[in-house]
């Protein structure tokens, strides 16, 4: 594995060019260009604040902030994994003719998606830490409220890194498996559209904690949180936002008198989820390397 990492390092200029190409191609012929990385999250904040919040009866103060903390990490994860599943086929003409460490291709897709992910957070922070507090001071009748600056935001870069590791691992798996089974792309598409509702994206994880099966079984909730995707989303919310009560998302939960624990996930569970991510990354890289020579030997 060390030798393969060294080889990857030797090809860093190609990797850089490949990332640049991905980014150029994505918005090549659009008028707004790179702004398209920023416009969708910005628009979704407005729509969530003025439409979705009222329709769902969500009482939480900064629903759009809670939602974006779920949507931004989820979009990075799902888009990168789906894009990479096709990446080797798209570049088949190249890998069949020229030597390059083949993992360069999925890794470049992950990095280009990572750039969009970071831009999404830039929008998030400038809106909730700068723009909205100013708007609120000028005219409190607008429903746009900022979020406070918290010391625990220092965790943010580590959570970003944890997600990058997770996404890279998943992407290497999906890129390699898709070379042998065409179902992979469809399985991922179906799975992703379903788990969107199962994962704490539209609501906070505490809602899951207090509803249904997990109500009396904290261990089951911890098991759910060992899944790195809900763990990473919950970690983002825990680091960036004030703790919210589950009944602010779902009024029926008020009857259960949920305790106002601010961090409902034990640190050991976060650590476990991180170790699982690291394992996915390591095994994905090992699996990719074990079969990368067979990618072109098919008919």
């Amino acid at each position: 594995m060390l030798e393969e990492l060294r080889e990857l390092w030797r090809f860093r200029y190609l990797l850089q060019m490949l990332v640049a190409r991905e980014l150029k191609v994505r918005y090549k012929n659009s008028f707004l260009g790179f702004a398209w990385s920023i416009v969708p999250p910005a628009l979704s904040v407005i729509v969530i604040t003025y439409c979705v919040k009222g329709a769902l009866g969500v009482g939480v103060h900064n629903y759009s902030a809670y939602l974006l903390c779920g949507i931004i990490p989820w979009t990075f994860f799902s888009t990168a994994v789906l894009d990479t599943s096709q990446s080797l086929l798209v570049n088949y003409g190249v890998i069949k003719k020229v030597y390059l460490p083949r993992e360069v291709i999925p890794i470049a897709i992950v990095i280009s998606n990572f750039v969009h992910f970071v831009l999404g957070w830039v929008v998030y922070f400038s809106a909730f830490l700068v723009l909205f507090p100013i708007i609120h001071r000028i005219n409190p009748h607008f429903d746009l409220v900022g979020t406070p600056l918290l010391p625990r935001m220092a965790w943010f870069p580590f959570i970003v890194l944890a997600e990058l590791i997770l996404v890279t691992g998943f992407s290497l798996w999906s890129a390699a498996l898709n070379m042998f089974y065409e179902d992979v792309k469809f399985i991922l598409q179906t799975l992703f559209s379903l788990v969107y509702f199962v994962l704490p994206i539209l609501y906070i994880a505490d809602v899951v904690r207090y509803s249904g099966l997990m109500r009396d079984r904290p261990w089951l909730y911890n098991l759910y949180m060992l899944n790195p995707v809900p763990a990473v989303i919950t970690a983002f919310r825990a680091a960036l936002l004030e703790p919210a009560m589950p009944q602010e998302f779902n009024k029926s939960l008020a009857a259960l008198h949920p305790t106002p624990t601010s961090v409902p996930v034990p640190p050991m569970v976060y650590l476990g989820a991180f170790l699982i991510s690291a394992f996915i990354a390591w095994s994905g890289y090992a699996y990719f390397n074990s079969c990368k020579w067979r990618f072109v030997e098919r008919s």
């Binding site: 200029y13 190609l14 850089q16 060019m17 490949l18 640049a20 190409r21 150029k24 191609v25 090549k28 012929n29 003409g93 190249v94 069949k96 003719k97 020229v98 030597y99 390059l100």
Partner: peptide, 27 residues
């Protein structure tokens, strides 16, 4: 070692010739 690629392989059709030279050369 330079392999000559088949027509189209390694090029991206939405990018300009110059942009393609950058990637293809690096390849």
């Amino acid at each position: 070692v330079a392999p000559l690629l088949e027509l189209g392989a390694g090029f991206h059709h939405e990018l300009t010739g110059l942009e393609n030279i950058g990637f293809y050369g690096a390849l």
